[in-house]
Design a binder for these strands. Structure first.
Lengths: 196, 196, 196, 196
DNA sequence: CATGAATGAGTGTTCATTCAT
DNA sequence: TATGAATGAACACTCATTCAT
């Protein structure tokens, strides 16, 4: 009987290796050789588990989003409306090392996505999920009377999500100017203003 | 008699060529050969004016920022306070083709900057200028009584700049969701709220 | 109790799989993985029955010749002389799909044989059989008075076999110029001229 | 002033190197690295003179045909009809080392052409030229009364060309059986029979 | 025997860089 | 200065082969 390997496990190993490289050295450093080496395998292994490099990158992006979603699901348990929304936004911002790495990966993918239809489609599909979550939380908050009337909830969602991404990339690029504390304060302020 | 060449002029030509390529075909298409060809020179010239390709890219980023600054300076002539601030923000957002290309270039550099100390330093230096401009316009507006009291102007500046970058990248990644009209409306709304 | 496997049967299965691939997708598509998969086995099995890939290819060539020989034997039952010869020649020419595939395989091997002593030896050994058959049919025809006198039968055989191979490759390379009808006519004409 | 290289010359060098390899070791041995090495350059040079490997192979095939055509043109000077035809056929058959190598190259390309639309098109285009030459020589011979009446000249051309290719590949594969002498005799005989 | 995971050399191709002219 | 020929390492990807299980 040969050594039986769970393909899913091997794929996860490779994707994790790719993710580590992207987070550590940038997306351009994620060559197939580097990924294989980081995973502790030879070049050839990748062939058995992925059609090509793009599939690895896409998987890395999806895996990152899946991790974020999972983390969110736990945090959101028992929360609704603005309370839940606050958690969502804070969770999507680089306030600890893990999130800093996640944001770095995400920003690296932004540039790639603008040049790759495949990646762009993944990016869009997954961004839609987060947007739906934010909109539905806003609606729940509105129905619960937590939000002052007269707001276009779609606009609000758009603004919050853009603010989260903008602050995230600024936190990475200009950490001394946009400290963690200020970042958190700005996010919280935004939620409070919705209620005001 | 050696040929006298204005180094600055040559550098500008090459950087302009690199910028055209990055905006047209993406940063990955900006190979040294492509840049030299676009500039109308041979491969070898680049050596005389730039230490390596990275120096060209850095210069292209600087030049883009310089162009934006110049454009702003013209638009700001005769304007002050919130009126000027409105122009600054609208000018930094991809509402026409030129700005879409500029934003694409910028987003491409974000990813690179996170993996390159050189680029990161350029990015920071130049971002500081824009921030100073915004802060000083906010202060002028505050002194002119255009802004409701109680606002931390540094926080406001941070929020506006993050929003501009966040909306910009979203406009590129999710154009059907964040239309030009909505983008403009969100920016204008932000200014109005400062006054409210 | 070890599993008892008929090596010959396994080899035949693998060779048949290789042949199908070569005929369907060309000799370059006949990778070891593709052959194993086509045969319904894992990659590793090939090791037990063949020293290396070349041995599989050689076997495929031999098997193809054996199939042709067998088919001929059936067709030749009850025939002799020029009548039998006509069948032999027509059978060796790509007039239907099966023969087109056979010819494609053969032409692919010609090129390889010129660079591989092993293949060349197989090629020669098997070509000798066909030649002997043609010569003996010619001799029978001559003894039966079917062929006009004065012909060097070795030369005739050589000419007929060369013509068959030449027309075969031309039929594949220039199908619109050398139609099936013309090919058949040319072959039949050749036989008729022997008698004339 | 830089070293100026005649691109045509460099291309010819590379094509000649590729041709030598194909003739010596077979078309599968003609890797880009092997070609560059044989030409005395590094891998990278090929890029400057050829779009890709296929262009080198196509050029090698065309160059071989051009050499043959040129050689023919010289031999045909002052000849017409069957006399010229005899030269054409003898010239297209591996009777000396140079022609043996040429035939080896040609046979290697046959296999490739069956799997590559590009090569097939080159093959067909160039084969058409030779066929036109043969047909026109046959027509001239017919008009001069050198050929017995009642022959379909297209069929004759087809038969002669197939015979030439068939005998050529047999001479390479089975040299001891089809000697140079017999090959020449068979060709000459064919011409004589046209007149008979 | 059979499996299939793993290897690593090899493929065509790209490209920043060097340097003689 | 400017040229452009040349380099050689790197890229993603392929594949015959090995071997522990």
């Amino acid at each position: 009987m040969p050594k039986i390997v769970d393909h899913g496990v091997r794929r996860d190993e490779v994707v994790a290796a790719a993710t580590r490289i992207i987070m550590r050295d940038g997306i351009d450093a994620a060559t197939t050789r580097a990924i294989a080496k980081e995973a502790g395998y030879s070049n050839g292994v990748l062939t058995h588990y992925f059609a090509d490099k793009d599939e690895i990158l896409v998987s890395a992006l999806e895996a990152s989003h899946r991790r974020i979603t999972e983390r969110l699901r736990e945090k959101l348990a028992g929360r609704t409306g603005l309370d839940a929304l606050r958690e969502v936004l804070l969770d999507n911002v680089p306030l600890d090392d893990e999130r800093v790495r996640e944001t770095g990966l995400e920003v690296g993918f932004w540039g790639r996505s603008l040049a790759s239809a495949d990646l762009l489609e993944v990016q869009r599909r997954e961004a839609a999920d987060l947007r739906h979550l934010v909109v539905s939380l806003l609606q729940a908050a509105a129905e619960a009377g937590e939000i002052r009337s007269g707001e276009d909830l779609d606009d609000v969602a758009e603004r919050l999500l853009a603010l989260v991404d903008g602050l995230s990339v600024h936190r990475l690029l200009y950490p001394s100017r946009l400290t963690g504390g200020r970042l958190e304060r700005l996010i919280l302020r935004e939620i409070d203003l919705l209620a005001a």
